[in-house]
């Protein structure tokens, strides 16, 4: 009887182990000097709320989206540049939608769907200067304390620098974290 239970437990452990570690866990050596890996992108408290503010220059443009007369340009992990593109020879900057952590967007019927922090938000943008939040869904898998892909070194998040709103690939110096 005891034997049987032990066998079962062993079986369960084996199944669990195979599920958790499809690849053998790899224990890296620290320190490692200069190595490619993920670095956290932080946001300060004042950058966290959704806000439509004055236009600013493009720094790290991400994805683009065209809807009716508007051209939207993502600024990686910061928000969305909004242009009036009625005349493509002279796109006119209307402002910047502060949306910390943002990389994705789509629009339907004057509603902008976008990622904000670790949430998926629906924003009524029929009037950009008066953006209204229609819904906000938490995305448990968008947890930001660890980088998006496994098998990489990363700079350990430092709470004192703000909250982590994204990760960028870069050269790290002696990273102390690995996933």
């Amino acid at each position: 009887m005891v034997m049987k239970t032990a066998t079962r437990m062993l079986m369960a452990a084996l199944i669990l182990a195979s599920g958790c570690y499809t690849e053998p866990p790899f224990a890296p050596d620290f320190p490692v000097g200069e190595v490619e890996g993920y670095k956290p992108v932080y946001a300060k408290d004042e950058q966290l709320p959704v806000a439509f503010v004055a236009g600013r220059p493009l720094v790290h443009p991400g994805k683009i989206y065209s809807v009716s007369k508007y051209l939207l340009i993502n600024e990686k992990y910061q928000g969305i540049h909004v242009f009036d593109n009625s005349d493509p020879t002279h796109p006119r900057a209307l402002g910047f939608l502060q949306l910390a952590g943002n990389t994705e967007m789509a629009v339907r019927n004057n509603v902008l769907y976008a990622d904000h922090l670790t949430d998926l938000v629906a924003l009524d943008v029929s009037d950009w200067t008066n953006v209204r939040e229609l819904s906000r869904l938490k995305q448990e898998h968008w947890a930001q304390q660890v980088p998006p892909r496994q098998g990489r070194y990363f700079e350990c998040p430092d709470d004192t620098q703000g909250i982590v709103i994204g990760w960028e690939m870069t050269l790290l110096n002696n990273p102390k974290c690995f996933r």
């Binding site: 994805k63 789509a106 629009v107 339907r108 019927n109």
Partner: peptide, 19 residues
Amino acid sequence: GLTGKGGSMARFAVTATHL
């Protein structure tokens, strides 16, 4: 005309009723 157009690298696709 109610739905916009994203680039080919998009991770969101929106239809008349769903995202």
